[in-house]
Design a protein around this nucleic acid. Sequence first.
DNA 1: ATGACTGTTATAGATATACTAACACAGATT
DNA 2: AATCTGTGTTAGTATATCTATAACAGTCAT
Lengths: 123, 123
Amino acid sequence: MVIEIDFNSDEAIYMQVRNQIIIGIATSRLQEGDVLPSVRQMANQIGINMHTVNKAYSVLRQEGLVTIDRRKGAVVAIDADRLQTLAELKEQLLILLAKSSCKYITREEIHQLIDEIYEEYCL
Amino acid sequence: MVIEIDFNSDEAIYMQVRNQIIIGIATSRLQEGDVLPSVRQMANQIGINMHTVNKAYSVLRQEGLVTIDRRKGAVVAIDADRLQTLAELKEQLLILLAKSSCKYITREEIHQLIDEIYEEYCL
DNA sequence: ATGACTGTTATAGATATACTAACACAGATT
DNA sequence: AATCTGTGTTAGTATATCTATAACAGTCAT
């Protein structure tokens, strides 16, 4: 699980880490039960602070994607809280679609883009 | 253009304002050339600081949705920079779809949800 | 017992958010 | 011409968040 950070991005480092782990899980490079690298190990590997990785793991726990055990570390464990997931998804999609609509991106183009992403990243 | 803020939300106030204006434009309640309320007026109306509204307007300007004139105020003016819009959209959609996929939301459900949003909000 | 490994807590500095107050310019009204 | 009212802008401040360093506490193999 190689993680790359763009230090010039305006997105917080811990969110970049979180995002890439989510993509890792979605693409099955990380699977239910897999243990994530320790916060120190991953922090070292990508040259950031341990606590920043810890924050990323905490967010993932709060989002129901991992559990954190003092002994083992962070373990991939999906809590498929369907209703909440759909509600959040809808809210975020709405903003994305609204902005796209402002820029004259059509509904068909959105559908197409989604299929493109699914295939490009093998979700 | 009535804007409602959830002060308990973890989303920044200026982003909530920005989001609702984007939805307003997407649903044609705000149209090209329309003048947004002055920063003071809107700040007063929703009970927040003028500078917070100013920040929202600044973001909208940077996103190519309004222009800001010292005399007139903020005016809806779409800069349909298609390529950049699509690139940003794809990046953000990827994260959303990946997270959904982790939670066992299918591609079909995504397509369905998008149609639902388009119809519910008349985008 | 010791050493190596976990995550956790305490603390601090930098950055971002939201605010108050004062400013500068444009345009209408006196 | 002077004043008033309307713009956004800038300066400065308090609070929260992000990132970092350092010390802590529990677990487990040696």
